[in-house]
Design a binder for these strands. Structure first.
Length: 609
RNA sequence: AGGGGAUUGGUGUAAUUGGUAGCACGACGGAUUCUGGUUCCGUUAGUAAAGGUUCGAGUCCUUUAUCCCCUGCCA
């Protein structure tokens, strides 16, 4: 982990919810091992390698790995790679990297070998096949030669029972033979399937003779051409859990209807098993538990929609800082700690609610506030000339003032920042005709330049178009370091109402700064129009060029924290948190705004425009 | 009456299993402040509805309402 300090909430530590209640009871009763031994707890995170992980997955990762940490058990990273036509090796890599980035490790994980200790469902294909044969022998599965259309039509609907397949009662030997032919690739895709024989009249559609295997004559990214049939989720998942000795198999609410099937398959294998049985010993039967997935406002997490954003060019890629993918959030500047804190704060329940995305923003502000070094950067520069600069010495001299690195961390110390005759301040910090509650600079007003000097605006310089292009100001040499000047003869102390950030023209660097806003304007994108694209925010990206930054941002200073992911993050005073984008080159820095600071002035302005 | 799940302030969640509805965030107000940041203090507002059992109901029972999931050879 980084030296950047802990997030506000230590993940998984003392959080309680209905799943911990279940596990506590199991530990107390000795359901999975010796009474009181919590180290037997085994969970798993089972992504399909067909896309990038997003914030919703992060919640599941934090839950599963957090539970393992809490109980002293383990959490397995297992790829559910049962569909070769949708899955790719590239996703395996990115998923592993994302889980590691969040700060979690599984048994056997190593830094020098990304895949060390990682499990794959495809490693269990032979075992699953053998169990399928066992179910055929037990009369609990059969090969169906109907077309997929016929199967669908015969399934019935929500209120009418299905009708049995004409192949439902075919001889066991025939199913056995056909299944082996399927396995060997002797039949084309879609020509037949292996189905479980359960109940065509079940009110639970999942139990109407579900498909266990389909023929897919495609190359698998790990097993190559070894298999021509691939197991369906419902058949495979519980077996994967069983093989790995998972105790608590945690999934989302939509799998609640699948639990009877999860249990049925394992029970069917176990039927007739036991000591002395020819079938063998009973296999491990994990408990499936469902919880409500994370559902944050103002974003989408559907793989289809995320892919559409990327492929149709609404964003610049899967790691576009506006994307809710972990790679996007990482590039945006979010810390693993803040994401873990967010996941912990949203709780674990069975209630399908909406989680305010503002919580995620607050989580990263909270974390970065404590650990991010402060720097000064001017997004939209307005030139300031100190007309009486010569009062304090040579007219073209540079003075170095000590600027606080982090008021939240006295140990962070100070740095030297150049101050000179020509400066830049934020254009938004000056108003020619300021309203009552605007505290910043205006004609005749005096403000403090942070850790620099107090300046007073004497004159406004405009171009032909009437735009303000420069401010002529005087400074008070007695206010060096931003200190208050001594009281006047009558004992009155002068005060300023605002402190502004600034950079000196003589010693600054230019950079591009990318400002991001929410990708969507609607709390639930697509809710109204049924098309999430209708709710896209046309101003979600604003690229600022010619920004003026203090020189220290161009080089890595010794006081910068050793971030675990190597991403340099800062607070730009009074603006927000920013990080260095990988698009940066040595001569041309690019920063991303992670999140703004809380801004009560803009709130006030919105209230009284 | 197809099946399954859910419902506590604006939001997210707790409530020792029948015993004072608590916490966090937000919003609002105030204090502090060399970041209109941070921090601190205060205010705000809730058991979906109706019946019932009980000395006592968020919790138990009945009815109703609303929302989510389920008819892939996806996961």
């Amino acid at each position: 982990m980084s030296d950047a300090g802990p997030a506000r909430v230590s993940p998984g530590a003392e959080l309680r919810h209905f799943i911990t209640d279940i596990i506590d009871a199991d530990v107390a009763s000795g359901k999975w091992g010796p009474v009181g031994d919590s180290s037997v707890v085994r969970t798993r995170f089972p992504p399909e390698p067909n896309g990038y992980l997003h914030i919703g997955h992060a919640k599941s990762i934090c839950l599963n790995f957090g539970l393992a940490e809490r109980y002293g058990g383990v959490c397995v990273l297992r790829f559910d790679d049962t569909n070769p036509v949708k899955e790719e090796e590239e996703f395996v890599r990115s998923i592993i990297e994302d889980v590691r980035w969040l700060g979690f490790a599984w048994p056997g994980a190593r830094d020098d070998d990304l895949k060390a200790g990682v499990r794959f469902a495809s490693d269990y294909f032979q075992q699953m096949h053998d169990w399928a044969v066992e179910l055929i022998r037990k009369g609990k599965a059969y090969v169906d030669e109907q077309t997929s259309e016929q199967i669908r039509a015969a399934r019935g609907d929500l209120t009418t029972p299905g009708t049995p397949s004409p192949f439902r009662d075919r001889p066991v030997e025939e199913s056995l033979r056909l299944f082996e032919e399927m396995v060997q690739g002797r039949h084309p895709d879609g020509s037949m399937v292996l189905r479980a024989r359960i109940d065509m009249a079940s009110p639970n559609m999942n139990l109407r003779d579900p498909v266990m295997y389909r023929i897919v004559n495609a190359r698998h990214h790990r097993t190559g051409d070894a298999w021509h049939v691939y197991p369906m989720y419902d058949w495979a998942h519980g077996l994967e859990d069983s093989i790995e000795g998972i105790t608590h198999s945690i999934c989302t609410l939509e799998f609640e209807n699948h639990r009877p099937l999860y249990d049925w398959f394992i029970d069917a294998i176990n039927e007739g098993r036991g000591p002395g049985s020819a079938w063998g010993e009973k296999i491990h039967h994990p408990q499936q538990i469902e919880f409500a997935r994370l559902n944050p406002s103002y974003i989408v997490t559907s793989k289809r929609k995320l892919r559409q954003l990327v492929e149709e060019g609404y964003v610049r890629g899967w790691d576009d800082p506006r994307m809710p993918t972990l790679s996007g959030l990482r590039r945006r500047g979010y810390t693993p700690e803040s994401i873990r804190a967010f996941a912990a704060e949203t709780g674990v329940t069975k209630f399908n609610g909406v989680h305010d995305i503002g919580w995620l923003e607050r989580a990263v502000r909270d974390h970065l506030n404590k650990v991010a070094p402060r720097r000064m950067a001017v997004l939209n520069p307005l030139k300031v000339t100190i007309t009486n600069w010569a009062d304090g010495g040579e007219a073209d001299r540079i003075e170095y003032v000590d600027v606080i690195n982090n008021p939240e961390d006295p140990g962070a110390g100070t740095r030297k920042v150049a101050f000179g005759r020509t400066l830049y301040i934020e254009r938004d910090d000056f108003m020619e005709d300021p309203p009552k509650k605007f505290f910043r600079l205006g004609p005749g007003r005096e403000v403090r330049l942070r850790c620099g000097y107090w300046i007073r605006c004497d004159q406004v310089v405009k171009n032909e178009a009437g735009e303000v292009v420069e401010l002529l100001c005087t400074y008070d040499p007695q206010t060096r370091g931003g200190e208050s000047p001594p009281p006047d003869a009558d004992g009155n102390v002068r005060k300023v109402k605002a402190t502004l950030h600034w950079v000196a023209a003589a010693e600054c660097i230019e950079a591009e700064i990318r400002l991001f806003d929410r990708l969507y304007l609607a709390e639930r994108p697509g809710r109204e129009s049924d098309n999430h694209l209708d709710d896209l925010n046309p101003e979600s990206l604003r690229v600022m060029t010619g920004c003026k930054l203090e020189k220290a941002l161009g080089e890595r200073l010794g006081d910068e924290p050793a971030w675990s992911d190597g991403i340099r993050r800062f607070q730009f005073e009074r603006l927000g948190y920013f990080c260095v984008d990988p698009d940066s080159t040595p001569g041309r820095l690019v920063f991303n705004r992670t999140v703004t600071l809380k801004d009560s002035w803009s709130k006030e302005r919105a209230r009284n425009p």
